[in-house]
Amino acid sequence: MKNKMKRKGPVLAMAGPVSIWMILFVTLPMLFIIYISFMSRGTFGGVVYEFSTESYTTLLSTVYFKVIIKSLKVATLTTITCLVLGYPFAYFIARKPREVASKYITLIMIPFWTNSLMRLNAWLLLFQTSGPVNNFLVETGISSEPITFVYTDGLVALGLVTSMLPFAVLPMYSSIEKLNKSLLEASADLGANPKKTFKNITLPLTFPGIFSAIILTFIPSLGIYTVTDMLGGGKVLYIGNIIKNQFGVIRNWPLGSALSVLLIIITGLLIFVYTRFAKVDELEVV
């Protein structure tokens, strides 16, 4: 037991590769992008290594500021929808016997083995002007003419919620499942009605799961650009699209980096709040 602490060989051999990989491809790039965000943009794109806060002042200009606010709004709405839809569902599964519950969980995962873009495309096929939904609406007389769903914020929202829902359900499921059932019984025995029990016992005790769900849905939906690309048709732009564009056609690296830094800061803040009442290790990610 004692001598293994002193030997450096095995530590290096085991933890070495992963440490080097993380430093080379996570730490350094993250630091570099912060550095780049304070540089100037080149006339023909790329970077000129001169200090400048221009990219941050650009972020505060109306066009970009609007996009940032809109992205935050959409991510918030997506998260709330996922929590509201996901919590009762997670509760339903958690109350099943273990064996059954694990089957229900697998049933959630299966659709996610289908290519995510093709699943998004399916919503487009379903809701396009001459698609099944519009045909149904027109034929039954609910609507006199086809409704334009395609490339609207509504369809993007549907895509976001359906993509994120499992990431909200899984952590909430595992924390509801861990809930000590005798506490609920005790509460009922002591005369609390179901509503009171839920508010005073279930909700506070499953809060870590709820917060994990918030992190795992809010942060990805803030940065995702595939949903908007597939369902927004280039008309709906969120932070993710803007960042990607700075490294593609537009080639304004400092601005793209500054937007990335903004996402890092938002993520950092959320994680900081999370660590106030739970450990990062408990973030159910897998």
């Binding site: 992963v18 993380m22 430093i23 491809f25 996570v26 730490t27 350094l28 790039p29 993250m30 570099f32 992008i33 780049i36 992190i215 942060i219 990805p220 803030l222 940065g223 995702i224 650009y225 993710g240 960042i243 990607k244 490294f247 690296w253 793209g256 980096s257 990335s260 996402l263 890092i264 993520t267 994680i271 990062v280 973030l283 990610v285």
Partner: peptide
């Protein structure tokens, strides 16, 4: 802590950072 970054930070941020390097 580093290991949690790729899991938590939006993928686009990490991708852009690696690309720039």
């Amino acid at each position: 802590n580093m290991l949690y970054i790729p899991i938590i930070v939006p993928e686009i941020v990490l991708a852009v950072a690696i690309l720039v390097v």
